[in-house]
Simulated assay, not measured.
Amino acid sequence: MRTPISTIHLITKSGHTQAERLGTDIQRWLHRRGLQARIVPLDNYVHAEPGCSSLPDMILVLGGDGTLLRVAGRVAGLGVPILGINYGQVGFLAALSPEEWEAVLPRIVEGRYQISPRIVLGYGLQRDGGMVRSGWFINDMVVGRSGLARLVRLSIWSGGKLISALRADGVIVSTPVGSTAYAAAAGGGLISPELEVMEICPVCPFMSEFRPLILPSSQEVSIRVESTAPECFITLDGQSGWPLHQGDEISIQALQGRFLLVEPDGTSFFQHLQRVGYLSSGQEKADRE
């Protein structure tokens, strides 16, 4: 048992009528039980300091994994756990369905839940000897070409030593959370969220034996843009991005802070994999027999 939940912020997917309606219903349900619950617009949800008095005991996100990632990016390292109700396509992070909340939420507010810490990777972009951008990502960073068919040339380094140079559509650097997203589609492995690692996964490398590579997340890795023909872009968590220049170098390493995900008691990583179709539960075979 954990400390019971007494204050909750509810954040709904922008412009999603069903999510907004359910958010209002859950807020009323919480109020009837004497709990503090506030609906906060996603675009206005910013907290700057750990331990500030306005931080809730938990954040409940009604939306897809993309919405949950946007929220997590704003509160990573603040020690606020996040629970997701899925209104998206997959729902690997936002694991509850809209039909499950009435059965699960009473147990969670009583303290019957697990906290799953997930690593956050930080990055810094250097150009012409100076730092021009920095930040973090929770799912993945993609360095790759635009929609045109020509490949980009990249080199990957760690500790001053060259790991590989390649021509490819791009490279994905993912956390264990991101290993189930674009990296999985590109042939990467499925990584337990309990591991403190990052995965480097090439996207359609040309004449290269580079295989997906898993490294300690504490180890700094750098990606250098050797050629941008025709164009090369960086994309973070599938939500924001910008063009890169030849000679740009991006360094990646785990941050101290963690993103905290709420999971109801009895759930597991393998159940999530089975639910989204990455693993077979054996139920299909049993049904046929």
Results as ranks from 00 to 15, higher is better:
67 T>D: 12
216 P>H: 04
254 A>S: 15
132 V>G: 04
213 L>H: 05
130 G>N: 09
79 G>W: 13
17 T>K: 11
170 G>S: 13
187 G>M: 03
247 G>W: 08
174 S>N: 08
159 G>Q: 14
272 H>G: 02
69 L>F: 10
103 A>I: 02
131 M>Y: 07
174 S>Q: 00
9 H>A: 15
264 P>K: 08
98 P>V: 05
137 F>K: 00
26 I>E: 09
95 A>S: 12
186 A>T: 06
281 S>L: 11
16 H>T: 14
77 G>H: 06
4 P>H: 14
106 P>N: 05
63 G>E: 05
134 S>H: 12
124 G>Q: 13
131 M>A: 14
31 H>F: 09
251 S>M: 06
131 M>S: 07
145 R>T: 10
110 E>P: 03
287 D>K: 14
41 P>D: 05
163 I>R: 10
284 E>R: 02
120 V>S: 15
45 Y>N: 14
70 R>G: 10
194 E>Y: 07
183 A>L: 01
178 G>M: 03
20 E>F: 05
115 I>S: 08
118 R>F: 07
222 S>C: 07
21 R>Y: 11
275 R>M: 01
256 Q>K: 10
235 T>R: 07
46 V>K: 12
44 N>T: 15
244 L>M: 05
52 C>S: 15
104 V>G: 00
118 R>G: 12
121 L>Q: 00
73 G>T: 07
142 V>K: 02
83 L>D: 00
28 R>N: 14
230 P>I: 00
81 P>H: 13
109 V>S: 07
241 G>F: 00
240 S>I: 10
254 A>H: 15
11 I>Y: 09
175 T>R: 06
176 P>G: 10
205 P>T: 09
33 R>P: 00
128 D>R: 15
83 L>R: 00
30 L>C: 12
84 G>Y: 04
285 K>H: 05
14 S>F: 03
153 R>K: 04
60 L>N: 08
246 Q>H: 04
5 I>F: 08
197 V>A: 08
237 D>L: 05
35 L>T: 03
119 I>N: 13
53 S>E: 14
282 G>K: 09
259 F>D: 15
71 V>G: 00
28 R>K: 11
7 T>N: 10
161 K>G: 11
196 E>I: 01
150 R>D: 02
283 Q>S: 11
61 V>S: 04
90 V>W: 03
234 I>R: 04
252 I>C: 04
123 Y>W: 03
48 A>N: 10
80 V>W: 05
5 I>S: 08
140 D>T: 05
174 S>D: 02
180 T>H: 02
203 V>E: 06
274 Q>G: 12
